[in-house]
Design a protein around this nucleic acid. Structure first.
Lengths: 199, 199
DNA sequence: CCAAAAATGGACAGAATGTCCGAAAAAGGA
DNA sequence: TCCTTTTTCGGACATTCTGTCCATTTTTGG
């Protein structure tokens, strides 16, 4: 962006503060953290903190923005050729699981259950946009009592975020491919096991 | 419980404080509320507040517990005869939507997006128990690469809570029966519209 | 080596928390 | 109704955290 060349001290200070916040979130949960905690962990003066960020929330938000930009850049870079796997639905899932695994501690802080909502909301928003885009087509036809697109989006994104948070909280034991496969199967085929068609 | 007869003043004070909190949550969001706000809204002295509750979170949690007890009592009362609609899956859904509609403002405070997580977690826990119970059977067989029960529970509950929150935030415009129908259809049949079997 | 920029620590006012106490008010039993 | 018990009240208090400001020291990059 506008940060063509940045003073080493600034980069170092901000980076240290971001990392301190992430580690504290995993330690004691976001709500219980004070600005003092962050500064002490980061070995940074409190006045320095306030010369970079206006509050704890500001620090969190800006760190999040940065990494979400990275995520979207990844996505753009690895975008499947349009029309390639065109009929592969919910394509956002695997890249996001992989990105989360590659930045596990950060994601556990941002999207884990200790992260305290704020970040989760931003991530949820991004995922919502991706999903809405994908299922945009098949909504307009069938004016009858079809399920509204907003409902489908809410449903899918809620389920996905829950899986992501669960996976991160448990230390991301299962491989991203497995998580992605299960999610897409549940979303497209429903929760009934294949042999329970018996009634 | 142990509250056989309760001094009128105590009942009145606690009730007023609970109601004050609920209304404030809808007004300014849970995080921004101070104990002073609650006391002023309720016309109760601050020392009185602390003689009943240890903190804002305590007040919220105890109010939540009370109403969750009521919800479970409702559920027990209206429980379908076991074996009656045995094959109707996800039976918890409709009663919970209806209960939420009957106590709309309270639920918007507890489970709406302004409620700030804490209550959502408790509700999610209860719903998780109900869902886990229901899909307990069909898990043990098929030792192969079947989707683990925890994953299915997480998926379903995440989707349900997202729908519930979305519905409440929007003022619960759609009838509970509609919400229930859409949820159960999405959960059992997946998100594909019936006519998109084309590939 | 030097001027500009950043980091530091300490002081400060303001807000909110949680505790304590004496005095006023309300409740409920006799 | 009266009297004792319990609750409520309001104010004072110590503590913690916030956010701002400034004079001083340190680091950076040219």
């Amino acid at each position: 962006m506008a940060d063509k060349v940045m003073d080493r001290r600034i980069a170092r200070t901000r980076g240290t503060l971001q990392r301190a916040l992430s580690s504290l979130i995993l330690t004691k949960g976001y709500d219980a953290i004070t600005v003092d905690d962050i500064c002490e962990t980061a070995n940074v003066g409190r006045s320095t903190f306030y010369s970079h960020f206006t509050s704890k929330d500001d620090l969190k938000r800006r760190g999040l923005d940065e990494h979400l930009r990275e995520l979207l850049a990844d996505r753009r870079r690895n975008a499947p050729a349009p029309g390639d796997l065109k009929d592969r639905h919910l394509a956002f899932s695997l890249p996001l699981f992989e990105h989360a695994r590659d930045h596990l501690d950060l994601y556990r802080a941002l999207a884990g259950s200790r992260g305290g909502g704020v970040s989760l909301g931003a991530i949820r928003q991004i995922v919502s946009d991706l999903v809405r885009e994908e299922i945009a087509d098949n909504a307009d036809r069938n004016p009858g009592d079809v399920i509204p697109r907003d409902v489908v989006v809410t449903y899918v994104v809620g389920a996905y975020m829950a899986l992501l948070t669960w996976w991160l909280d448990g230390g991301a034991k299962l491989p991203p491919q497995r998580m992605d496969g299960m999610f897409r199967q549940l979303a497209t085929e429903g929760i009934m096991p294949p042999d329970s068609e018996e009634r």
